[in-house]
């Protein structure tokens, strides 16, 4: 592929990846947007006298919409899922990165299995189990359910992070009298932190995206932002301002992650440059 062709193709795709969001922004800020106007005939700021805020956003901050509690549920669930996921996946990733053992293939396959099983099938199965255990419709059942699909991502990214850790460094520190806590605190944590943070952010994101699991295990009583948007979509009609605002709200974590990841990964490269190459 020639360079010019490649640059053109990249530009087209960068545009198609971002431009669609413009329609959401316009829809969420429109006051009147009649057919066939390309842009709203009355924007929200031209109607400030009657509208305190854009229609979609005004609805979202109103208590009746339950949008803010749903946002809090999303964030709380995702934080808990990330912490549990890290606690479970990090030790496993460390083993997978450094040890050779029998049955390794089977273990890797099992840890990737949640990627193969359709989310719907997993959700139906967990919904049945949650009813048996009496946690259906409670945030705890949803929390346990959310951990499953985040595990494959966490184990994979954390294995890669662990593989980048030079174990000779830890041995050298031990030879010089460092205890296991000192090795963790002064060596592993600073060296691995950027990669682990990136993996954690990704797990957070995966949890905020889960709709089917949340609806079926939560029996509709655990409402996250993604679930609220899901409930409003469909039917072939044009997008209303409220859905547009919800969709924009759901885009924020991804954009933040993109910005943070860029910074984190650059830092990791710097750190790698600082460690002695073998």
């Amino acid at each position: 592929m020639s360079d010019r062709c490649a640059r053109w193709w990249r530009g087209v795709w960068a545009l198609s990846a971002t431009l669609p969001f413009a329609a959401l922004i316009v829809a969420s800020l429109a006051f009147r947007w009649n057919w066939p106007d390309l842009l709203p005939s009355v924007w929200w700021w031209q109607a400030r006298a009657t509208a305190r805020m854009p229609i979609g956003w005004d609805y979202l901050v109103a208590p009746a919409s339950r949008a803010l509690p749903a946002l809090a549920t999303s964030a709380g669930l995702a934080t808990a899922v990330t912490l549990i996921g890290l606690a479970v996946a990090w030790p496993a990733a460390r083993v997978l990165a450094h040890e050779r053992f029998r049955g390794r293939g089977a273990v890797e396959l099992l840890l990737l299995a949640p990627l193969l099983v359709p989310e719907l099938a997993l959700a139906l199965g967990l919904a049945v189990t949650a009813v048996h255990l009496g946690v259906a419709g409670s945030p705890w059942g949803v929390l346990a359910a959310h951990v499953v699909p985040t595990l494959p991502y966490l184990v994979r990214t954390l294995s890669a992070v662990e593989q980048g850790f030079d174990r000779d460094l830890a041995d050298a520190a031990r030879v010089h009298g460092a205890g296991s806590w000192a090795v963790f605190w002064h060596l592993r944590l600073p060296l691995l932190a950027p990669g682990v943070a990136a993996a954690a952010l990704f797990a957070f994101l995966v949890s905020t995206h889960l709709v089917v699991l949340t609806v079926l295990v939560g029996q509709g009583r655990v409402e996250t932002t993604a679930v609220q948007l899901f409930a409003r979509l469909g039917g072939g009609a044009a997008l209303d301002p409220i859905s547009a605002a919800l969709a924009l709200l759901l885009t924020v974590p991804g954009v933040l992650l993109l910005a943070l990841l860029d910074g984190l990964l650059r830092r990791r490269v710097d750190l790698r440059g600082a460690t002695p190459r073998v």
Partner: peptide
């Protein structure tokens, strides 16, 4: 920047992708 930005579809949930498709391709859409 372009290769960073093009990861955006990967980082939004499928329901947002559905909202985008709807806003562009629905009857009264863009």
């Amino acid at each position: 920047l372009a290769s960073s930005v093009l990861q955006l579809p990967l980082l939004v949930p499928y329901v947002v992708a559905v909202a985008l498709t709807t806003s562009w391709l629905a009857g009264g859409g863009v």
